Each structure stands twice: as C-alpha cells, then as structure tokens.
Amino acid sequence: MSTVIYPSPIYGPVHSRRLGLSLGVNLMPADGKICTFDCLYCECGFNKDRRTHSPHPTRQQVAEALEKQLIKMHDDQQHPDVLTFAGNGEPTSHPEFSGIIDDTIQLRDKWCPKAKISVLSNATFSGHDDIRQALLKVDNNILKLDTVNMDYIRKVDRPTQPSYNVKDIIENMRWFKGHVIIQTMFMKGDGTDNTGEEYVAPWLEAVKYIQPQEVMVYTIDRETPDQKLRKASHEELDAIRDRVIALGIPCTASY
C-alpha cells in the first residue's frame, strides 16, 4: 500500500484537478492521520494503519510556517491560486481551527491577495457554531456528501462518530444558504457503486434542497487503501454533472 501522508503544517504547492495551484495546509501531525471518517478510498490510508501520538501543530506554528512559505513564493513570483486546508484528516477537528482561519485570511491578504482559501471537509463538525462561523469566512467551503444512503456511508465513508446522521449533515449544509460547495466521490468496486439511479436520484434531491453555489463530482485519482475500488467512467460522471446543471447549479466533473 503506497498511500500518502502529508508534511505538516504546510505542503506543496501542488496542482489540484479542481482548484489550480494549491498550497496545502495540513492541521494534522506529519506522522499520521486523525479523521472522523475512515473512507475506503482515502489516499492517506486507513485510520488504524496511520495512528499518531504526536500533537497537532499549534496555531502559532501554522501561521509561522504559512507565512514563511508565502514569502518564499512571493519572492519567486509564484503565487498560489488557492490555500487549501486538507492533508492527513479532518481539518475542522483542530481545536484552534477558527483562529487559524483568521490568521490565514490576514496572511493571504498580505502576501497573495488574489488567492482563494478553501477548506476540504467531511462536514462532521458543520453543526458547531464556531466551525460554521469560520467556514463562512473562507472562499470555498467544500463539504463532502457522497450519498444520502446511510448503509453506503457506513460501508464506504465509515464515520467514526456513532451519532453521524446524513440528514443532519444535509440540514447543516443548507444552513450556509448557498455558501457551500458539495463534493461527491463516485466510484465502483468491492461491493460499492453509487453511480446508479437508486443513489443518484436521492442525492440530486438533496443537492436541490441544499442549493449550494457549486457541486464537484469526481472519482478515484490516486491509490486507495482498498485496492478493489474502481473509477466511475467519464460518461457516468458527465451524465451526473449534466443533471446537476439542469437544476440550475454549476457543476464540474474531475476524472
């Protein structure tokens, strides 16, 4: 298994299929993974194989490392398109997430004012007021909704919180009143396939109810810990994308 663990707290820049030249912000330790999901397709591997006993980087450490890299990129005349919170787990679980977002906005405005700030989240903390207020401040509040089928979610996304309920997540997404981008992984293999009508139609109803500013549909691009998984086809993704667009909601497909 050659899944990847990212440096912390800053990595890249890397070229993102969906976001452009992205400077990554990893709020998890550099030697492991801390996540409220344990997805079969996670490029960082399964939680049990990536355990860490190291502390999170502190708010100060994140700010100092980010400014150092932004100064270097500024001096090299290489400006990021986006500052992306992702990495080895769920970024909004960091105990100082809200303050880190405030620091990042200040540093962005100083060194690369045209860059967007993106947060890639599984939405498990989207009901917490401090997290909501922080996500309202970023340009791209990208929240995961792979399906509305709880059986599929338990098998594929595997939330670690027993209280996880996709109905609550949908309501939390709707709370943002359009300031949210839905990101959905479509794939097949190992008894999974959320590309069929029994999954897509209810998901589309949820998308219509949430009314996000955009939807991103994508499929497997890197090695996965469950090696029996397979990509959704271009044709399947394009068909789903077109159905979202027909709802009047912008949608992109990444293969």
Rank of each mutant, 00 (worst) to 15 (best):
P13S: 11
T192D: 08
R243I: 05
S254R: 08
K144F: 01
R17D: 02
G20T: 06
S16F: 08
K155S: 11
E198K: 06
N47V: 06
N165Y: 02
R230K: 09
S121N: 04
H128A: 14
M1C: 00
I170E: 07
P250I: 14
P7K: 05
G20Y: 07
T3S: 08
P159C: 04
P55I: 05
M187D: 08
K231L: 02
F37Y: 15
E64T: 00
V148C: 08
N122E: 12
A253K: 09
S2C: 07
P113A: 04
D146Q: 09
N165M: 00
K155F: 07
E223S: 05
V62K: 08
D130H: 15
D49Q: 05
R174S: 12
G12F: 13
E197N: 06
R158W: 05
M185T: 11
L70W: 00
S93V: 15
N122G: 10
G87Q: 02
I240H: 14
D103S: 04
T36K: 10
D221W: 01
Q211L: 13
I153S: 05
T58K: 00
G12I: 12
D168H: 12
Q78G: 01
S2G: 13
A134E: 00
Y152M: 03
H128E: 12
K137R: 13
P13L: 06
D49H: 05
G45F: 00
K48W: 03
E223G: 04
D242S: 11
D226M: 01
P95M: 06
K144H: 05
Q213L: 13
D49W: 01
L70F: 00
R132Q: 14
Q161M: 05
T3F: 11
F186T: 10
R50E: 08
Y218N: 12
P212T: 13
S54Y: 00
R222F: 06
K68T: 07
G87F: 09
S233R: 12
V25T: 11
F186I: 13
A123I: 11
C42K: 08
R51A: 07
D38P: 00
Q78P: 01
F125E: 04
A123L: 12
M187G: 01
R243Y: 14
E96I: 08
V119F: 02
P212Q: 05
L83T: 13
K167Q: 15
L229I: 06
V215Q: 10
Y218I: 13
N141V: 13
D226Q: 01
V4N: 00
N88Q: 11
I170M: 04
P9Y: 01
R243M: 14
T3I: 14
I170Y: 14
C42E: 06
R132V: 04
Q213R: 14
D81V: 01
I170N: 13
K137N: 09
G20N: 08
G191P: 09
L247F: 13
I10A: 09
R59E: 07
K116F: 07
Y6H: 10
V138T: 06
S8I: 06
F176C: 15
A201S: 13
V166K: 07
T160C: 10
L135D: 01
R59W: 02
D109R: 07
V215P: 11
M150E: 15
S8R: 02
R241S: 05
T124Y: 07
G24S: 10
E236Y: 13
F97A: 04
K33E: 07
L107C: 02
Q60T: 15
K33H: 14
N122W: 01
Y6P: 00
D129T: 06
L83I: 15
S121M: 02
C39I: 03
R174T: 09
